[in-house]
Design a binder for these strands. Structure first.
Lengths: 226, 226
DNA sequence: TTATTATTCAACAAATCAATTGAATAATAA
DNA sequence: TTATTATTCAATTGATTTGTTGAATAATAA
């Protein structure tokens, strides 16, 4: 026999758990992280997360039933996006909690980066100023759509696959800073690797757009009429 | 065949999912919410959450393996506590996200409170001032240990079960504000119900200590030597 | 119309999880 | 020492979840 207040509490925590269940699967978290960068189609999400289409679709529906994402059909494609910027903040707070509490994360990161480019700390405070003054070239190596949805002011959009083509246009003696989706995205790692091989003085900025936004720094974006 | 960067990403999101899995069960969320108020023994957690001891113990071990809580043996009892105040902040951000995204929560709350005491909004800004000036009596109706761990300045500790005994000591003509663990805790609901039945002018403050802290308001606590 | 492409649905096997029960362990009291 | 109490462990059941297949649906193109 349940008292009314027990039934009330059970109902309340069951609602909270809807959010928890939605973020309890590694693949759904990866999808959510991708959607924090910009809206995307099922196909591109499936490709980026290394999932089959059917599986991606199912995970997205779980996220949608927890109201974390919305979807909209646009011609042949269905586009998914976060239902609220608050979802991105929540994901970030989960990431930060994991970084603080789970020492394994730091080890996983170190093991992957070992032998690859080092992690010279980039001075974020002065970065924007140095970009403005032309002392630094800042490259956003994410796909173009993510750059359009929001990027660090002064950054050039150079998706990783096009980096090779524009190498000749980069100032040979200037410091180059590359960034991507955040500390666990490998795009900027590969970009810096390639740039160094070509003789450039390149470093990686660990933070992504969401981190800059969370730090209260300005973000440029090209809002679409919708 | 997995590429190294796919293996890296899988490992990273698997770590994030450890947090997600820990907060994907309603009962674990209830335990976490209780631990946000103060440290507690397994027994008291089991009692408050309406669980068997064995079941409580297992849930607590899941929370511990995600490093969200720590435990310590103190004589006959094992005490559990949050491993970091950041865990409380994370739980709160999850709660706020659920409140904003899941309309069901508001409905559940309304259904429970319907017929019970209304929800006159309490002016939080001026509450502390009015308490100091003696215009309002503020009652903390949670168990004493939770009051000791942190309470709103000026509040009196009157655990619900002792409210009846001290009714005679309350100023009969003054407004009485009761609070407990937060919007989904029923202790203050019952307190206000009883006070009104006895003729007092009583209202419920929805916010709990964690909400006050998150709003940057001061919290009094009696730190134990440890 | 038919063909094509993107997405979703349905059904399944393997894995994981929640809650229950009863036994095992650890600290204290008699 | 034995008894008591609080907690954890182990084994079980039923329910849920993941990822895989292949079929079904929806929008567009030919």
């Amino acid at each position: 026999m349940k008292t009314p207040s027990r039934a009330f509490k059970d109902a309340v925590y069951e609602q909270f758990a809807r959010i928890g269940k939605a973020v309890s699967s590694p693949k759904r978290l990866e999808l959510l992280d991708l959607l924090c960068q910009s809206e995307k189609t099922v196909e591109s999400l499936a490709h980026e997360a290394g999932l089959t289409l059917a599986n991606t679709s199912q995970h997205l529906q779980v996220l949608r039933s927890a109201r974390l994402v919305d979807s909209e059909r646009e011609g042949l494609y269905v586009t998914y996006r976060l239902s609220d910027p608050m979802v991105c903040e929540f994901f970030r707070s989960m990431r930060v909690l994991a970084e603080n509490r789970l020492a394994e994360l730091e080890m996983i990161k170190r093991r992957f980066l070992n032998g690859r480019e080092g992690m010279e700390p980039v001075d974020r405070e002065s970065l924007l100023q140095r970009v403005i003054e032309g002392h630094v070239t800042l490259l956003d190596v994410r796909p173009e759509g993510e750059y359009r949805a929001g990027h660090i002011p002064g950054a050039l959009s150079v998706p990783l696959r096009r980096l090779k083509e524009i190498l000749a246009d980069l100032p040979p003696e200037q410091e180059i800073v590359a960034y991507c989706r955040g500390p666990y995205c490998v795009l900027s790692v590969f970009a810096v690797e390639m740039l160094r091989k070509e003789g450039f003085n390149a470093v990686r900025l660990e933070e992504g757009v969401q981190d800059f936004r969370a730090m209260g720094l300005p973000i440029d974006s090209e809002k679409e009429a919708r």
